[in-house]
Computed example of a mutant assay.
Amino acid sequence: MEKSKLKEVLWKLTLPLRFLWEFHKGFELYYIQGIKWEEEELENIFALILFGDYIGLPHPPTELTYRLLPYVVRELYVMQEKSGKEVSLKTGWIGV
């Protein structure tokens, strides 16, 4: 009986600490999602700069594009995968 009473008291004493820990985890998850979104957007901008000539935007010199090409291989695979999908509101009218 004494052991269960002690556990109950410890449980109640640690409640504020557990609450703050879960609160912290929620904020951490929120900001990690924001950072991942920002990284994806920067990758999209990077690809747009390198391959903007496909849609009529001026592009950097060809030599610079070729030197940066190894860094966008994954982006090329993503663009290829999206271009084969059906047109919808989510993919947009150009299929990307």
Rank of each mutant, 00 (worst) to 15 (best):
V9D: 03
V96T: 10
M1D: 15
E41G: 08
L69A: 07
F51V: 02
L42V: 13
H24C: 14
Y54Q: 09
R67N: 00
K36R: 09
L13F: 05
E81H: 14
K90A: 11
V9N: 05
E86P: 00
K25C: 06
G34D: 01
G52K: 02
H59F: 09
E81L: 14
P70V: 05
K5S: 14
D53I: 01
G84W: 00
Y66C: 00
E39L: 15
V9T: 14
M1C: 08
L69P: 02
I94V: 10
L6D: 00
E41H: 08
Y54P: 00
L10G: 00
E39T: 11
W37N: 06
Y77D: 11
L64C: 10
T91H: 05
I94H: 12
F23M: 00
F46K: 01
G56C: 03
K36Y: 05
K3R: 10
N44A: 06
E38R: 06
V96Q: 10
K12A: 11
K85N: 01
L64V: 04
S4K: 08
T91N: 02
S83N: 11
E75W: 03
L68E: 02
I35T: 13
L48S: 12
E43M: 07
S4E: 13
I35A: 11
K82P: 00
L68V: 02
